[in-house]
């Protein structure tokens, strides 16, 4: 992709300047300041006290565990819901494709805050979901959906499902349809065709989607705050509480840094695996 119009290399660099400067100022600077303040005590001396406090207090570790667990379940549910959608998008006609695309990404056009209030109405004890289930005789008393882990996971899946469906659909689309037919001719049932052909060959899309959904839902604030409330504390709500309510900037910074490190760790795992996946996909490309 390197173009060699002689002497004109400064032009793209100059044009990239404002964007790069903006990203550095708006992203890198606060992160650096945040990271720095997490290592300072009130007397501006270097200290690990905030980290020590976090890791020695069971309540905070529960919060970290809550975040990891919610992000994990959200990712898992998103994968299970996204595969059929992505497969249908990739293999059915363009009418289906467009319908699913619209249904999937339309919620993105509505603010997460508004959607969360919508979920509050749907999920509350006297809400339509509980009423319907009770009317059908499936349950006797209302399920606790609001202010529970279930409610937060439902809300998070709704918000982040598109980030799973889209990369997955584009990965499945790239799989040669004849591979499935070949597997069928060789006696593979629909389930085994999925396990032996679609799943392994869509791993790059799966990994990309899972990384996006996991890192996004572990750092989500609005949905856990509005659907989980006081009942289920996660890392972002804890940061907000420390900084906004308790005015403890330095401890809040430390919690933020821990959250960022966890997200980065997931990314690193993804990159490590991505190298292997790329082998498969490049072989798949070469085989065409």
């Amino acid at each position: 992709m390197t173009r060699s119009v002689s002497g004109a290399r400064w032009a793209p660099a100059a044009l990239a300047g404002p964007g790069a400067a903006f990203m550095i100022l708006a992203f890198v600077t606060p992160v650096v300041i945040l990271a720095a303040s997490s290592f300072l005590d009130t007397g501006k001396q270097l200290t690990l006290a905030h980290y020590w406090r976090f890791f020695s207090e069971p309540q905070y570790l529960v919060t970290l565990w809550n975040s990891l667990r919610l992000a994990f379940y959200t990712t898992l549910v998103a994968i299970l819901l996204a595969y059929p959608l992505a497969y249908a998008m990739a293999t059915l006609g363009s009418a289906w494709r467009n319908t699913i695309l619209i249904v999937t990404i339309l919620p993105l056009t509505i603010s997460v805050v508004i959607r969360s209030f919508g979920w509050q109405i749907l999920l509350r004890n006297g809400g339509p979901i509980n009423q319907s289930l009770m009317a059908l005789g499936i349950i006797d008393e209302p399920l606790r959906l609001m202010f529970s882990e279930t409610g937060v996971i439902i809300g998070l899946v709704h918000v982040y499902l598109p980030f799973m469906v889209l990369p997955l659909a584009s990965a499945i689309e790239r799989i040669d349809g004849r591979l499935e037919e070949a597997a069928m001719m060789l006696g593979a049932s629909a389930f085994r065709r999925f396990i032996h052909v679609i799943l392994p060959l869509s791993v790059p899309g799966l990994a990309a989607g899972a990384t996006l959904v996991f890192t996004a839902s572990i750092s989500a604030y609005v949905t856990p705050a509005l659907l989980g409330g006081e009942f289920i504390q996660v890392m972002p709500t804890m940061v907000a509480q420390q900084v906004l309510t308790l005015m403890d900037w330095t401890f809040g910074s430390a919690v933020s840094v821990i959250l960022t490190v966890v997200s980065l760790a997931v990314l690193v795992v993804h990159w490590a695996f991505a190298a292997r996946f790329t082998n498969w996909t490049s072989r798949a490309e070469a085989a065409k």
Binding site: D176, R178, L179, E181, A182, M184, M185, L201, A284
Partner: peptide
């Protein structure tokens, strides 16, 4: 299809790119 005892070779060969030659041949 798989109960007809018919072998089908696709124009693009449709070999499974993530399996070795052995695993491809042994798949059926």
């Amino acid at each position: 299809p798989h109960l007809r005892n018919v072998g089908f070779v696709f124009q693009s060969y449709a070999l499974f790119p993530h399996m070795t030659v052995r695993d491809n041949v042994g798949f059926g």
